[in-house]
Amino acid sequence: MTQPVEAEPQEPGISRRPVEIATALLLIGLAGIVLYDSHGRGAGWDGGPQNGFFPARVGWIFLAASLFILWQSFRQPDAVFVTYGQLRQVVRVLGPLVLFVALIQPLGIYAASAAFIVTFMAVVGTSRWWSIGLTALLVPIACFWIFELQFRVPLPKGPLEAMLGY
Rank of each mutant, 00 (worst) to 15 (best):
I33L: 10
T23P: 02
S38P: 05
L67G: 06
A102Y: 03
F53C: 03
V82W: 06
Y36S: 03
G40V: 00
F120H: 14
N51M: 12
V34C: 10
G108N: 10
I69G: 01
F53A: 08
D46E: 11
V91I: 15
L63C: 08
I28Y: 06
S113K: 04
P55M: 00
Q86G: 14
R41E: 00
V80M: 13
L70Q: 10
A24V: 09
Q76D: 05
V98G: 11
L67T: 06
D46P: 01
A64Y: 03
F62C: 15
G44P: 00
F53Y: 15
A114T: 04
W71Y: 11
G108K: 09
S73I: 09
A122W: 04
I61N: 10
L103T: 12
A79M: 14
S38C: 01
W71K: 06
W60H: 06
A115Q: 10
R57C: 11
D46N: 13
A43R: 04
G47D: 02
G59N: 05
I117F: 01
V123Q: 14
Q76M: 13
L94Q: 06
P55G: 01
L35D: 08
F74C: 01
G42F: 00
R41C: 00
L70G: 06
L26K: 06
W60D: 01
R75I: 09
F100D: 07
R92P: 01
P55D: 02
N51G: 10
V34Y: 06
Q89M: 10
S73H: 09
G95A: 15
D78F: 13
G42N: 02
I109Y: 08
I117E: 09
F53W: 05
A115P: 01
F116V: 08
A64S: 07
I33P: 02
V90I: 12
L30R: 10
L94C: 13
F120W: 11
V34N: 14
